[in-house]
């Protein structure tokens, strides 16, 4: 029952994304600005998402964006809403998009951050050694994403997906890190990260 509801919820998110996002331009050799316009309806014109469960890209490490665009294009990280946008992307366009979003200033999420959950999340983050990879400021580095100022609803879903084996592609070290932790702990981590 609960599982079914979660599937519906994800499906609904996909529909929202598909409805909001403009139809992709499939012509080859599209200029970068055109590509960026394709991304803006969901990820925000400045790379800061105001759409539920859609991640912010502003200030993400260049290599993280590059890796993910390639994994999504290859189908090893299947993201249905992204598929039409990435399937014609060439390596040099991916590098240019990665550089573009890496250079944009990240802004805080428009969601409400719960201070009590932030305190709890900070203690958990210490135990889970988040800073070893994501850095103490949680701004990320190289292939490891920025978590600071990321959307809470997005991180909440992604960490659960890692834990439950639904997140494909990328490294599996995140799966080992969140191995067996509770939904409540994941939510606290998401609030903590968003507050940074």
């Amino acid at each position: 029952m609960r599982h079914l509801t979660q599937i519906r919820w994800r499906l609904a998110c996909g529909l929202v994304a598909a409805a909001i996002c403009a139809a992709p331009t499939l012509a080859e050799d599209t200029p970068l600005s055109k590509r960026i316009k394709d991304c803006a309806p969901c990820h925000g014109p400045d790379g800061n998402s105001r759409t539920a469960t859609i991640p912010s890209l502003a200030g993400q490490p260049k290599f993280f964006i590059l890796d993910q665009l390639i994994f999504i294009r290859e189908g090893v990280r299947p993201v249905e809403a992204m598929a039409p946008f990435v399937k014609t992307l060439k390596e040099d366009e991916i590098v240019a998009l990665a550089e573009h979003y890496a250079a944009l200033p990240p802004k805080s999420s428009d969601e409400n951050v719960d201070p009590a959950l932030v305190v709890r999340g900070a203690a958990l983050a210490l135990r889970l050694r988040c800073a070893s990879c994501h850095l103490p400021s949680l701004v990320g580095q190289e292939q490891i994403p920025r978590l600071a100022k990321q959307r809470i609803d997005y991180m909440n879903e992604v960490m659960k997906a890692y834990r439950d084996g639904r997140r494909k592609g990328g490294d599996s070290i995140m799966a080992a890190t969140v191995f067996g932790i509770s939904d409540a702990d994941i939510l606290a981590l998401a609030h903590y990260a968003a507050s940074r």
Partner: peptide
């Protein structure tokens, strides 16, 4: 100790 020298490395997908 949250050392940043203990993280996995990147294998460039290009």
């Amino acid at each position: 100790n949250q050392s940043q020298k203990l993280r996995p490395h990147r294998a460039p997908p290009i």
